[in-house]
Amino acid sequence: MRRRKPKSSRSPPAVTTVVIMRLYIADAAPNSLKAVANLEAICKDYLGDSFKLEVIDVLEFPLRALADGILVTPSLAKLSPAPVAKIIGNLSDRSNVLSALGIKQ
């Protein structure tokens, strides 16, 4: 299990609430790598320092993912602020991800 520290952004964050997310991946498989890269770009562009991201490798922790209701990877769970949301896939549809995270474009 890896924890990523928020990176500082050059532009001011569009939100001030801290967004707490959990990303479920399968090691360095292609869609998992894409999901990490896409999410990092979104965090940098929209969240600045206002996020906490936990990355869970389901190949190492399958039971943890199952307990969280995850069926496939990559999956992103937004835990806070409410409402919770789940986004499935490599997060390449940016507008869909932003909408699920409650970020206004």
């Binding site: 498989a29 869609n31 190949l59 399958p62 199952l66």
Partner: peptide, 13 residues
């Protein structure tokens, strides 16, 4: 867009 599927019955990815 999926890399792995989790099987609750076996606890396996």
């Amino acid at each position: 867009q999926v890399d792995a599927v989790l099987d609750a019955a076996t606890g396996t990815a």
